[in-house]
């Protein structure tokens, strides 16, 4: 390995005295202070600042409309346009989930159900939002396009139990998604 000898830069007298640099530093910090008090910090506009620095003050102001298309929020279950639960409880997502946040109890669809030919749907489907790391693996692995990461990010609770999203909650957040998987349609 080649040895590189670094030469320290030679400082001139002004730099050695150090006071000039101090004064420059004060000017720099004070300019920042004044600018941020006037709400004119660099980037204040594009970051939708609250008028003090570049910070957006959270509960009053939200970043929601700026969230990018690919934002990964809470994983949710979706129904299709006919109101059918898309999930067939294949449990692939349960197995792929890195922190083991998903717990599925598979159930059978009774034969008198209009969707009897799908045969399976989850009886229970819990996602523990304390464990979830919003990686999106579940969405990627799902063969039925049944689980999606939505843009919800405010997931709070007062106890651990509150943080477990059960099936109802998941469908409630997830809503309806159309298209993509049509193999279970009447027409087919």
């Amino acid at each position: 390995m080649a040895v590189i000898k670094l030469q320290r830069p030679k400082l001139n007298f002004g730099e050695k005295i150090y006071f000039g640099a101090l004064i420059k530093g004060f000017f720099l910090t004070m300019t920042h202070a004044v600018k941020s008090l006037r709400g004119k910090s660099a980037g204040a506009d594009s970051l939708a600042s609250s008028g003090l620095g570049v910070t957006m003050q959270f509960p009053e102001q939200r970043w929601d409309e700026h969230l990018p298309e690919y934002y990964r929020g809470a994983p949710t279950l979706v129904t299709d346009e006919q109101g059918r639960e898309r999930c067939v409880s294949c449990q692939l997502c349960e197995f792929i989930c890195p922190p083991k946040a998903i717990k599925i109890t598979p159930g059978e669809i009774p034969s008198d159900d209009p969707w009897a030919k799908v045969e399976k749907r989850p009886k229970e489907f819990d996602i523990d939002m304390i464990r979830c790391i919003y990686c999106g693996m579940c969405e990627e692995v799902c063969p039925e396009q049944a689980i999606f990461l939505r843009k919800d990010y405010l997931i709070t609770g007062l106890k651990r139990a509150d943080m477990v999203h059960d099936k109802d909650k998941l469908y409630q957040i997830g809503g309806v998604r159309t298209g993509l998987v049509n193999k279970w349609n009447e027409l087919k």
Binding site: H32, A33, S41, A44, L52, G53, V54, Q57
Partner: peptide
Amino acid sequence: RFSAVIQDRV
């Protein structure tokens, strides 16, 4: 507060 203002925070 002052450090925050210097660093463009609140």
